[in-house]
């Protein structure tokens, strides 16, 4: 009666039922649907756009800024200490006479570098660890997850402070150390998703084709955790910036010769009572702005991916 070919290849999802009617028009298109979803999140979500814009601006400020705005951040200028904002020093100077504006630019570089690098390490390690733990399950899972439990039980800051007493921290070392402990959260999340995904029927279908574990993990499980991965990676950047700022503030980060936002605040806090607000608040605002911006993006992405999960 009805040639199956007569079926329209409608783009509309489902059978048009009210409950499952998709709330966004799924446009057929080229490329990976996860990438499209991320792009669409940015187009549709104002907060995500604001977040991205802030990050671009701050990155430009830190890396291009010093090319345009030349300041000396090496030799203290004891003739002009603790100056308030004025024409020659737009944001004033600190107790060593360093120009605050220029110092903010240099000081932000490490935050941004560490943030991205740590998120990259944490995500890659976390994906592999979590996927293996979740996929193989049983004893492997129990052992790997107990290791995560142990690591979770010792707050990071304590470990870092200890490590900083043994090793002289450099940027590279900080990245490695932070990366080594930041994979815990992605690992747990990816494991959870893997546990849920591995019983999905499309994974079982691979088995009936004679496909092996590697194909299942790399072709099916990991691509399907992309949503979670992208979201946690974003939050990881925010977290790394936060931890770094805390370590610098406590004085256990990079050596004092290298300016950072955290150490600027620690330096300036002594003078807060004297009303030298410019030595504390600009750095503080930049830290919070950076972290908020990444959190905005992470949140927006999470929302989009959750909507997608519900539609699945």
């Amino acid at each position: 009666m009805t040639g199956p070919a007569a079926l329209p290849l409608s783009g509309g999802p489902g059978t048009g039922s009210v409950g499952t009617t998709s709330t966004d028009a799924d446009q057929p298109g080229v490329g990976n649907s996860a990438v499209r979803l991320i792009l669409r999140t940015f187009v549709e979500n104002k907060l995500a756009i604001i977040g991205a814009a802030v990050i671009v601006l701050i990155t430009a400020f830190c890396f291009i800024g010093p090319q345009v705005y030349h300041t000396d951040q090496v030799d203290p200028n004891l003739l002009s200490t603790n100056l308030g904002p004025r024409g020659s020093y737009l944001l004033g100077t600190d107790n060593n006479g360093f120009d605050i504006l220029g110092r903010l630019m240099i000081g932000g570089q490490s935050s941004i570098e560490v943030g991205f690098a740590v998120a990259a390490i944490a995500t890659v390690v976390g994906i592999l660890y979590g996927a293996i733990s979740g996929f193989f399950g049983k004893a492997v899972d129990v052992v790997l997850m107990r290791v995560v439990d142990v690591a979770f039980s010792i707050p990071l800051v304590f470990l870092f402070i200890f490590a900083s007493r043994i090793f002289q921290p450099t940027l590279g070392l900080l990245i490695v150390l932070l990366g080594l402990v930041s994979w815990l959260v992605p690992a747990r999340l990816v494991r959870g998703e893997t546990l849920a995904l591995k019983v999905r029927e499309y994974v079982q279908a691979v088995r009936t084709m004679g496909g092996g574990s590697a194909r299942i993990i790399f072709r099916h499980l990991i691509p399907n955790t992309m949503g979670t991965i992208v979201v946690t990676a974003t939050f990881q950047v925010a977290n790394a910036v936060l931890i770094l700022a805390t370590l610098q503030y406590l004085g256990f980060g990079l050596p004092p010769s290298e300016p950072t936002w955290g150490s600027m605040i620690a330096n300036g806090i002594t003078y807060l009572q004297d009303g030298y607000w410019w030595e504390v608040y600009p750095a503080l605002v930049l830290i919070v702005l950076t972290v908020v911006a990444f959190n905005f993006i992470g949140d927006a992405l999470q929302d989009s991916f959750q909507v997608r999960l519900r539609q699945r």
């Binding site: 700022a245 807060l272 830290i287 908020v292 959190n295």
Partner: peptide
């Protein structure tokens, strides 16, 4: 909640000290 979540603990402390102590 978002702003609180994005603030380093010491930054929050500084803001409170500035407001209520200074």
């Amino acid at each position: 909640g978002f702003v609180l979540y994005s603030m380093p603990v010491y930054a929050l402390a500084i803001v409170l000290v500035q407001l209520f102590a200074i």
